[in-house]
Design a protein around this nucleic acid. Structure first.
Length: 154
DNA sequence: GCCAACGTTGGC
DNA sequence: GCCAACGTTGGC
């Protein structure tokens, strides 16, 4: 069992948008960054825990959790010329991009803002703090437990 | 809206 | 294969 942090712009796709999906489950697609792609394809497994993070908004914060409902499969958007995620260099035999399905799990009573995460010495090693601009990143079991505690979810 | 960090592209 | 130019992410 692994833990991850997924970033999403709430204007595009919020935690609540995920909750509104049938079965509280939605496709996490449109990943077009190789580092994030490699995590998705090679390391994210069904059942893994996901910290849902809202980025590029007024208060960037971890707002809740989800779980991986289906492990990686080729992102259909890359084959669709109508999609903004279309990639002319990808084909069905040799897909370049992958997606997963995730299921809404919980909304934090108290979202944990990035500023608070940065101030907490126990979280200074988080990829979120050390490296910007990575939309899928690993989280340790310790970080996961602490975030849930700070969010009032455990 | 600015801009720093960083990844990708493409000329040579 | 180097590296400059360019594009994107995302905090502020």
């Amino acid at each position: 069992m692994n833990y991850w942090l997924f970033k999403s712009e709430p204007d595009e796709y919020s935690l609540n948008d995920l909750k509104q999906q049938p079965g509280h489950t939605g496709r996490w697609d449109g990943i077009r960054n190789y580092q994030a792609r490699n995590f998705l394809r090679d390391a994210v497994n069904e059942g893994d825990g996901v910290l849902f993070y809202h980025s590029s908004c007024k208060v960037p914060a971890v707002v809740g959790t989800a779980r991986i409902a289906r492990s990686a499969y080729p992102d259909p958007a890359q084959f669709n010329p109508e999609s903004k995620y279309f990639d002319p260099k990808a084909n069905a035999e040799n897909p370049r991009w992958f997606c997963v399905d995730i299921q809404w799990q919980s909304e934090f009573i108290k979202p944990v803002p990035l500023t608070e995460i940065k101030q907490n010495p126990a979280l200074e090693e988080m990829v979120l703090v050390k490296q910007g601009r990575l939309s899928i990143q690993p989280v340790t079991a310790k970080e996961w437990a602490l975030l849930l505690k700070l969010g009032g979810a455990s």
